[in-house]
Design a binder for these strands. Structure first.
Lengths: 257, 257
DNA sequence: GTGATCGTTCCTCTGGGGCGAACATATAAG
DNA sequence: CTTATATGTTCGCCCCAGAGGAACGATCAC
């Protein structure tokens, strides 16, 4: 066990952090100027200037008459990441058909940094609006995708993740202790799919099925909808079947590495 | 004039460059290990280790049982960039309809770092295969998109770009001198659209129309196809009309900043 | 067993890089 | 016109960040 909670891995490199802070700022607000960045990030203009120069020469950012913004190179990088992570063709197709068939939101997620990251999202005709977007993260313990992935991860990895989890209650039903979570994971392993009963967002329920290859989880696929349409029976019956079927199709079409 | 050709802007920050090199390597090959990176980038393992730690804590990369890869966060960043650059909805729709109507490749590009960056690409039913992908760059002087954008950029910016241009011949028809290029830009301004007559890839021709807002160019929209189908007359007549029409639609639906 | 890898941690020592001041330009207010 | 405050840029100093190297522990192959 590690006594120091903040001793995560090696030393952090300050100048890299400055550049990453600049990138973070630019991803939220484009066309920022040297002065603005220097002020908000609390560094001298010369420092920011040097960082912007290096980032521009490496084509991460672009300058424009009104300021700096992130470069389109990120679109290429994103495409490469997509093809690295998994069989995008198959996953995309299955998420799409799932959304069409049910009319709800279908998503595919993987575990990253102890959270769920959304890899693909498709909205059906009747689907509700949610804030989740491809490439964003959600807690692993309050989402069906997260819990379902967690249920099939190796035990040591699960412990690591649980140890770092904050268990912030997102709704009144959010799991707030590791004991509860471990019970839930057991249940998911038994029934083969995971449920989110308004644990992440009030009024929304989800079902997820794991996508595995051999003994490793690649991710999970889910359906999300309002509690009014996602009744207990429907959730555990036809919707659970639908996500499980989709998960199986992805598994069959995925070459294991 | 500056005597030193390498004195582009401020000082380059070494540690940022190391991290960017790591990212570059990871975007080409995923699941790289500390050792591999240390070897190929010629740094000590401890150095690489520290960089990887910082990048992981900032969620730029993820570690996996087999090594490191880029994080899905990049998908989110890419989405943000897309919405920052322009009215993605409209551009996407016009590029799509252009590809459908003609059956060829339709693309939208903007200028970045003195090159054309592809913002959107759509392939029609009869379209040829090309290597260009969204987020990648091509020379500005050998593509119709590039030349068309260049033709409507402010004079001083054009000079900057031309001064930095390498004029590498991609085919026998590539423009290889600034004088030729300036003539070509004049021609494009006269006729209102730009042509690529096998200047970038042997056997391929393109037509592009500029998308402007007030007196600034936002980018250009193009059609690409084989010279056999893209005859001289068709190119200057119906295809030029098609891209011009699409450009106008985008202009009308784009709020100027 | 040995000899490779793998990743991690620590210490040392130097030059990289953050800071601040001075420098250009530019638009605005007086 | 001057003064003022904004912008981005360049330069040099001085110190600590950060790259390197060695030693460590853990695996895996033989």
């Amino acid at each position: 066990m590690n006594a120091d909670p903040n001793s995560e891995g090696g030393r952090k490199i300050r100048s890299v952090e400055i550049s990453l802070n600049i990138i973070d700022r630019l991803q939220n607000e484009d066309r920022l100027t040297v002065g603005e960045l220097a002020r908000t990030l609390d560094h001298s203009k010369s420092t920011i200037h040097n960082h912007l120069s290096t980032l521009e020469q490496r084509r991460m950012i672009v300058r424009d008459e009104t300021g700096y913004r992130l470069s389109l190179r990120l679109l290429d990088m994103a495409n490469r990441v997509r093809s690295q992570v998994g069989n995008y063709e198959v996953i995309n197709k299955e998420v799409e058909t799932l959304a069409e068939e049910t009319g709800e939101i279908a998503q595919f997620g993987i575990e990253e940094h102890g959270m769920v990251s959304y890899f693909e999202k498709e909205r059906g005709n009747n689907s509700v609006e949610t804030a989740s977007r491809v490439g964003t993260q959600q807690p692993i313990y309050s989402t069906s995708l997260g819990k379902t992935i967690l249920a099939f991860l190796p035990a040591d990895r699960v412990e690591e993740i649980v140890a770092e989890a904050s268990f912030e209650p997102k709704t009144t039903r959010t799991i707030t202790s590791s004991d509860e979570l471990y019970e839930e994971l057991e249940r998911i392993r038994d029934q083969g799919y995971g449920i989110d009963n308004e644990e992440n967002i009030e009024g929304l329920r989800c079902v997820s099925a794991p996508v595995t290859s051999g003994d490793t989880v690649l991710g999970a696929i889910s359906l999300t909808g309002p509690s009014s349409r996602f009744t207990h029976d429907k959730l555990h019956d036809e919707l659970a079947d639908a996500v499980t079927r989709a998960a199986n199709v992805i598994e069959l079409n995925t070459k294991f590495s």
